[in-house]
Amino acid sequence: MATKASRSAARLMISPAVLLLLGWMLVPLCLTLYFSFLRYNLLQIGPTPFAGWENYYWFVTDPSFTAAIKNTLVLVGGVLAITTIGGLFAAILLDRPMFGTGIIRIMVIAPFFVMPTVSALVWKNMFMNPVNGIFGRIATSLGFEPIDFFGQIPLASIIIIVSWTWLPFATLILLTALQSLDQEQLEAAEMDGAGWWNRFWFIMLPHLARAITVVILIQTIFLLSIFAEILVTTNGGPGTATTNLTYLIYVSSLLQFDVGMGSAGGVIAIILANIVAIFLMRMIGKNLDA
């Protein structure tokens, strides 16, 4: 595949797929951009005049926008912290040879295959419900006041639910990376006088740097758009306590039927996501080369 002819033939043959994908991406993007500059509310019949930057202005100055940005960051940051640190811990435990490794690994990965709506409902009704949930029951039986998870610590509750879904993903990637670590390196370090912590810090962690980067990048992309868990449990509330950017866009366009405003939010979300992506790539991307 190195001659000129074969290369141009290859280009010709993949071009339909590239064009299709490009259209697939560009058409909705352009439509969103277009709508975001219109005064376009589904409840108002009539013309949809050009509105300039009005939609953007109102979307950004809305107090719930600031709250949504903050919630998004806390949600993403919290889940990332829990899943990477917890995943590291779990991977190190699972890396040891033990009885029934195969079954335990399947059990560990299982939560990842549960749909977000289902897992959120299970958590909401069976675990976090102050009256019927397991946590409530335990608290009551021990004589404590049960926590009303979605009333008192709504955002933390959602972080817990999402972390539960993503922990297996992080664990699995980190476990795979850990298993590719040359055991002789650990033995050499042991002979060099490194205790467990030093071996972890100087040998395992640098070895895992790349895998950790992958976990963080992939998770960030998905966590920025968390939606189902919020819709099923708190509907963004109380107030705007659990409204993230995705949910705010949903509220604007599908609860208030303001297509223009929702589109403006969408464009802002795209820009923010790209800023985060560039920022992350810069910060930890250097781990990916070499």
């Binding site: 040359d182 002789e184 390196q185 033995e187 050499a188 370090a189 042991e190 002979m191 060099d192 006088g193 490194a194 205790g195 100087f202 040998i203 640098p206 070895h207 740097a209």
Partner: peptide, 19 residues
């Protein structure tokens, strides 16, 4: 434990720390 025996080992794979 190995670290306290005062012995140094050179492994077949060298086991250098790559980073």
């Amino acid at each position: 434990p190995p670290a306290k025996r005062g012995l140094a080992m050179v492994f077949q794979s060298y086991a250098l720390y790559p980073h």
